[in-house]
Amino acid sequence: MIQIRPSDARGYADHGWLRAKHSFSFADYYDPAEMGWGALRVINEDRVAPGSGFGRHGHRDMEIVTYILSGALEHQDSLGNGGIIRRGEVQRMSAGKGILHSEFNPSPDEETHLLQIWIEPVVQGTKASYEQQPMAIDAMRGRWRLVASPDGADGSTTIGQDARLWASMLVSGEPLSYAIAAGRLAYVHVVSGALNLNGQVLRAGDGAKIADETDLRFQADEAAEILLFDLPPNV
């Protein structure tokens, strides 16, 4: 089963300083049919105005991955971590038993465009932690680059869930495949461009819920960037 989630069906919020599209229910956007997919709880596409951002606030028991598309984001948290993340880096915050943080666009004139991803952890109440590391864009071209995993394999950031987040960039006409272990779920999010997935067309902002499939076949209809979540079975 491959169920397409069209971009224009996503929730939308415009706060002036923040424009956000929600693939799943989040904040004031609520759809009981769109509460996540397996352990994947949130994919928010955020555009943060220059000099604006998310003031200090708290989270618990969530693995939060920030994937920058353009611009920069400045992070500060209650663990004493601080820094600026840009395109070509990945940020992971394990909220655990509790963490406070802020995220601001430090630029006076450039918008920050990002994806904020939440994955539910296996174990709740763990020690909060933070990680920021490089993610070479060239390593994504024409192949899968592991962004997040439970064991930090291949230089990926470490999350507390048996889930793997992969990224790839394809040129027009380029094929790519992915094998899913029996019983596992997957989710695809198209960051940009357009592609064909097992005979179905997906465009920028579209998602796809995937179950009971073992072989995913992608082909770019135009230059495309995609994220693929390999998720544990629903229990």
Results as ranks from 00 to 15, higher is better:
51 G>R: 05
54 F>P: 02
37 W>L: 12
74 E>W: 02
60 R>I: 15
47 R>W: 09
34 E>R: 15
65 V>W: 03
34 E>Q: 15
18 L>W: 07
64 I>Q: 01
29 Y>H: 12
39 A>L: 13
15 H>A: 12
58 G>L: 04
16 G>E: 05
20 A>I: 06
53 G>D: 10
64 I>H: 01
28 D>Q: 14
58 G>Q: 12
56 R>V: 14
36 G>A: 11
51 G>E: 08
48 V>F: 06
22 H>T: 00
47 R>C: 11
72 A>L: 03
17 W>E: 08
21 K>G: 03
75 H>Y: 07
37 W>S: 05
30 Y>M: 13
48 V>I: 15
23 S>M: 13
50 P>E: 10
28 D>K: 13
19 R>Y: 00
50 P>L: 11
37 W>V: 09
67 Y>Q: 04
18 L>E: 05
14 D>P: 02
28 D>T: 14
15 H>T: 01
55 G>C: 05
38 G>Q: 08
47 R>M: 14
36 G>R: 01
56 R>T: 15
24 F>R: 00
64 I>N: 03
59 H>I: 11
54 F>T: 07
53 G>K: 06
34 E>H: 14
19 R>K: 15
47 R>K: 14
40 L>W: 03
70 S>Y: 06
69 L>P: 01
39 A>Y: 05
48 V>E: 05
36 G>Y: 06
63 E>G: 02
79 L>Q: 07
16 G>W: 09
25 S>Y: 04
51 G>T: 09
27 A>C: 07
72 A>I: 03
14 D>S: 13
27 A>W: 10
77 D>W: 04
60 R>A: 14
46 D>L: 10
71 G>K: 04
60 R>F: 12
72 A>Q: 15
24 F>Q: 00
23 S>L: 11
25 S>W: 05
